[in-house]
Nucleic acid binder design. Structure first.
Lengths: 130, 130, 130, 130
DNA sequence: GTGGTCTAGACCACC
DNA sequence: GTGGTCTAGACCACG
């Protein structure tokens, strides 16, 4: 399911983190579901297990997943979002950067809002099958 | 005017680019205005001139500024926005990442839209003095 | 009685050891009392019998329990504490690590002492019923 | 300055983290001070740079250090302790484990308190020279 | 020079 | 089987 762009400037392990988080929001990966094992995913993506490991560890640190010794890595069932002033700043910076770039491309405020709407609906629109 | 965070993970040269572009949008820096010379800015920010150089080169590549030999670097007067499919993808990725993170912080769709609105108005709210 | 957190980074077999030892100190489990059989406990906690086995073996190695062939595992009636220089070092390391972390959380020396007092009284406060 | 025990069950990278944090509390390493570079320390301790890297990244994640691109890793000057319910639990667990072990060694409540006092004074007792 | 990422391949503890 | 740690050595971006 995961698509990795080896040529991207964003590190591979970060792409994995992002895709997993996105997949969960979209409902493609469900809470409680088991992620592929480190070695398995490494083989699937023809990457080094260490790279997957790094991604999985960060996902666990963010409480997106939990790992059960000897069993594997699972999507958290009870993710508790918490608003953190610092993280809010980071997200704001991300958005600000995007907005500035958008303006430089000639997009209007309306264009930007439409784009955001579209992106949000892409995340929410996918319904779970089970 | 420029505020640089040496400890940030975004490279310093990129911070400079971002701040200049943001300053222009806000009207703090005006079209035709001369930017400080590389050496000057390097001294002001106590940074390596190479770093400033890299930022200025990138700004020029993006046609945000023009450099006139022997005179200095100036903000373009006739910036022509171009919708570039590739850049649009990049911006979308930026926003998508922000949205995913926002959701993981517990923000609702409405929260996100409000945040975007706020950020846009911060950029537009500052009126030019001339 | 035993509460196991499969997602914890401390191995399950170690959690069992810790809980048994704590239970004995608290008087919840009494000297001479029979512990559940390996299979029984494995079923109760839905764990692999090997895991329980490992915990029981370690408890016996530490002389906290004794195993009687064909009868089961029992809490030692005559546990003889021995001050062991090496173990004292280990415990000191444990405390030191805790103290360092506590300081990094902004706790004062007094806070730490209060916390220790509280934890000790939690162990001692539970009186035996027999 | 750092002493690593390769035979210990605590991972090397964690030992490094612990020793750095302890060194800072003791005043052996001062705020603003530069830590040895990844490669340098790797050579000093005859360890793989990756191992040091992991330790340094975790230290930065905990805000104990900051890294300045191209310059190195420095001890934070403005560490802001924050009490976190979860971390408090972890520290409590650490202490509880230590207390249980101490009891099993025959230490009395008084012994434990004295030990704690001693460990705290070891951290605080070392005064800075500058 | 610095830290950051990645590969290749190994060994370990745990379940 | 699982994840976790570590070594060896490489390449890259940044300042």
């Amino acid at each position: 399911m995961l698509i990795i762009d080896a040529t991207s400037s964003t590190p591979i392990y970060e792409q994995i983190i992002d895709e997993v988080k996105e997949g969960i929001l979209k409902g493609i990966i469900e809470p409680g579901e088991k992620l592929p094992s480190v070695r398995e995913l490494a083989k699937m993506l023809t990457l080094n297990p260490n790279t997957i490991q790094k991604a999985y560890q960060e996902l666990e640190r963010q409480k997106v997943t939990v790992t059960i010794r000897g069993r594997g890595t699972f999507v958290s069932e009870d993710y508790q979002p918490r608003k953190d002033e610092e993280r809010l700043m980071e997200v704001s910076e991300l958005f600000k950067k995007g907005i500035v770039e958008a303006y430089y491309m000639g997009l209007t405020k309306e264009d930007i809002c439409n784009l955001i709407e579209k992106l949000i609906s892409e995340l929410e629109g996918v319904e779970k099958d089970d």
